[in-house]
């Protein structure tokens, strides 16, 4: 059994940033999953969702929940990331919380995503968009 959902994300719509991740959180809480694992999933998804809002023009979040894991794929149309490796390490690895206090979009939060996911794959094409694939096991 797999439960799938697709959410549309509008670039620049900061007012609604995080609504997809909070919907996913509600779904996960109805299953017997360690609350700490839910927290990791939601933090990673929130971070990735905000990235779309802050940096891309629009995007789509597709999630699939099976009894063992959740797969989350975020595809956006946007400027893309020129150097993914650099974006992963750059600056904010220890400062994510402070960064968020400064407001959305101040950092990519990619390192924060990596800390909270079991599998992470990012592909990007400059000028076209970015695809973030995350898997978390329960």
């Amino acid at each position: 059994m797999v439960v799938e959902h697709t959410y549309h994300v509008k670039g620049g719509d900061f007012t609604h940033a995080g609504s997809a991740s909070s919907k996913v959180k509600k779904l996960l809480k109805q299953l017997d999953i360690d609350p700490k694992k839910i927290k990791n999933i939601v933090i990673a998804l929130y971070e990735a969702e905000v990235n779309i809002v802050a940096h891309a023009w629009e995007g789509e979040i597709w999630i699939a929940i099976s009894p063992e894991k959740i797969t989350m794929v975020l595809t956006d149309k946007g400027p893309g990331i020129p150097d993914i490796e650099q974006a992963m390490v750059e600056g904010f690895s220890t400062a994510s919380k402070e960064v968020r206090e400064m407001g959305f979009g101040a950092g990519m939060g990619l390192s924060n995503i990596r800390r909270n996911t079991d599998e992470l794959k990012i592909t990007s094409e400059v000028g076209t968009g970015t695809k973030v694939e995350m898997v978390n096991y329960f």
């Binding site: 439960v3 109805q30 017997d32 099976s66 009894p67 329960f138």
Partner: peptide, 23 residues
């Protein structure tokens, strides 16, 4: 202690089925 009263079923696979059914 945390509580589980909002879980649809103690069995995760069954809960997932119920979740799909809710949808």
């Amino acid at each position: 202690a945390p509580s589980r009263v909002f879980q649809l079923d103690p069995d995760r696979a069954k809960a997932l089925e119920k979740l799909a059914k809710v949808e």
